[in-house]
Deep mutational scan, measured.
Amino acid sequence: MDEEYDVIVLGTGLTECILSGIMSVNGKKVLHMDRNPYYGGESSSITPLEELYKRFQLLEGPPESMGRGRDWNVDLIPKFLMANGQLVKMLLYTEVTRYLDFKVVEGSFVYKGGKIYKVPSTETEALASNLMGMFEKRRFRKFLVFVANFDENDPKTFEGVDPQTTSMRDVYRKFDLGQDVIDFTGHALALYRTDDYLDQPCLETVNRIKLYSESLARYGKSPYLYPLYGLGELPQGFARLSAIYGGTYMLNKPVDDIIMENGKVVGVKSEGEVARCKQLICDPSYIPDRVRKAGQVIRIICILSHPIKNTNDANSCQIIIPQNQVNRKSDIYVCMISYAHNVAAQGKYIAIASTTVETTDPEKEVEPALELLEPIDQKFVAISDLYEPIDDGCESQVFCSCSYDATTHFETTCNDIKDIYKRMAGTAFDFENMKRKQNDVFGEAEQ
């Protein structure tokens, strides 16, 4: 370990593993360490099931009705991949897709007046949907046509809207959309967690709705994908990429100290040895004095023996409960997957309800979601602090990732990755940087 590296990475969460992969592909010498004996950090999948019970201090362990412990891979952080989103792009560019198998999530649902409705995925579904009345549908269709044709580089498509100054509230007004449709559009399509976006320039919202539609167009059922064997497969896929390009991995490796000289990182000390480096990437748990708390998320993992009611017996789905429907500031989400994804025993389902904490009784906040899941065989409640770095790391060369937020997709995580890359490399992130180099010394032969 007593060696000189360009970059040392602490923690094998998804953000850290993707950055480690990119740095290795770009010719950097990388050492990647984790104090845990497993990959994934906060974003790991726990197996066998006995391990999950232990982690949540349920000492009696799983009953026999849960089947074989080894058949379970339970995500600690519930997220899906947008089919046309940035993480899929990263997987394709790096060819990490060859280590993973994905399934399309069967449906996306939205909560309205105590019931759940399928988010329409085709024009026919939209016309048949009970989510809105006849005239509302016509106006909504006009709005969707506007979004589909919108091109930020072609003012002819703006229809009198200025993407940089017109607020989204004004765009909704222009198409005369009612409150329910606005809730549905902002939260189930643009996937905002709160209503803060309404008074911001509309460009980002329009682009988010386009991303949803384009992702949906790829597979038809929903815009989301999920990897077989759980999300823990993602960091491992990128760790393989890093290793192929010469990255060194050490799990179960305690970090005793991060060594600084004149305010700059110069190395990491572990078990009496020092590895030197020019730059350091880590998750917040490794540098508690360089991060601040930015809120909390509650996630309740529920094991069920039945599909969720009114989802047409889907073996995977997402449910969004827009905040307006339950008098909150932030949406509540449910991600459900099952034995069909090799993450649970035969006939079992895993539904994870999550939201940003707003009160001193977080469990009560998630109740509307839990009511949709009854009866629940077993619950595991996790309340996590969200951390963000206190500075950009440019001076110390210590670059810290943000905690995983309450969103049900990876777009915010990818933004964090691109942002850290830019601060480390001094140049904007470009997907081309992730391409495997042809015929290089570490390149794998085609399968």
Rank of each mutant, 00 (worst) to 15 (best):
N310K: 01
G160I: 11
M23R: 02
T12N: 00
M23T: 06
Y224H: 04
L76Q: 15
L216R: 01
G27T: 14
S108A: 15
N36E: 13
F56V: 13
V266E: 10
E50K: 11
I259N: 01
L203T: 09
P63F: 11
K329V: 10
C282S: 13
G295A: 11
N207T: 12
I383C: 12
T124A: 09
S43R: 00
P120S: 06
D2K: 04
E159Q: 08
S222L: 02
I259S: 03
Y212P: 05
T165L: 14
A83P: 03
I352S: 02
A190G: 12
G178V: 04
T408E: 14
G41R: 04
S167L: 14
L373G: 13
V110M: 09
V145W: 03
D377A: 08
N262E: 14
E444I: 15
G246M: 07
Y212L: 15
F143V: 03
Y197R: 15
V9T: 04
L58W: 01
V266S: 01
N327S: 09
E365W: 06
D151G: 05
P37R: 09
D377N: 11
E152A: 02
R240K: 01
G61V: 09
C302L: 13
E446D: 07
E214S: 02
S222F: 04
S44L: 05
G220S: 06
T413R: 02
F143S: 03
V181D: 02
L373F: 06
I390L: 10
G178Y: 04
T15E: 07
T15W: 06
R193H: 11
K89C: 15
D196R: 15
K253T: 12
T94E: 15
Q57C: 14
C400Y: 04
K437N: 07
M134L: 15
H187K: 15
T412H: 06
T355S: 13
D162Y: 03
G246R: 06
C17R: 01
D196E: 00
G85K: 05
D154A: 04
K156N: 06
A369H: 02
M82A: 03
F56N: 09
D154Y: 04
L241V: 11
I352R: 06
S330G: 05
Q378Y: 14
D151C: 06
Q57W: 15
T413A: 12
G272S: 06
A369L: 03
D34Y: 00
D180V: 00
Q447W: 15
F143W: 10
Q325H: 07
E273A: 11
A406S: 02
Y172N: 08
W72R: 03
D71V: 10
I258S: 04
V25W: 08
T205P: 05
A369Q: 01
P78L: 04
I420K: 15
G13Y: 02
Q325K: 00
K156M: 07
Y172R: 03
A345G: 14
K278D: 15
L100P: 05
E125W: 13
E123Q: 15
D289C: 05
V441A: 11
C17Q: 11
L91I: 01
L49P: 05
I77T: 07
K422D: 14
R240G: 02
M33P: 11
R292A: 02
D256N: 07
G295R: 08
H409I: 10
N433Y: 05
I376M: 12
E271S: 03
Y421M: 03
C17D: 06
G11L: 04
E367D: 04
F146V: 03
H187N: 00
G263D: 09
Q179L: 08
T359S: 08
G267C: 05
G69S: 07
D154V: 12
S305G: 10
K115E: 07
S338Y: 00
A340T: 13
S316R: 00
G13V: 00
Y249D: 01
Q323Y: 09
Y111D: 05
G67D: 12
S20A: 11
S330L: 02
I420N: 04
N73V: 01
Y245S: 07
P254S: 10
F399C: 01
E233Y: 15
I352M: 11
I301R: 07
Y111I: 05
M434T: 09
Q397K: 00
L251M: 01
P63R: 05
G232V: 09
L370S: 13
T122V: 02
S242T: 02
K221E: 10
S270F: 10
G21R: 04
D2G: 05
L241I: 05
L87F: 06
Y421W: 07
L59G: 14
K379Q: 13
K269I: 01
K418R: 10
D440R: 02
K435G: 15
E388W: 13
F143N: 06
S222T: 04
R169W: 14
K142D: 06
Y349W: 08
I281L: 10
G186I: 12
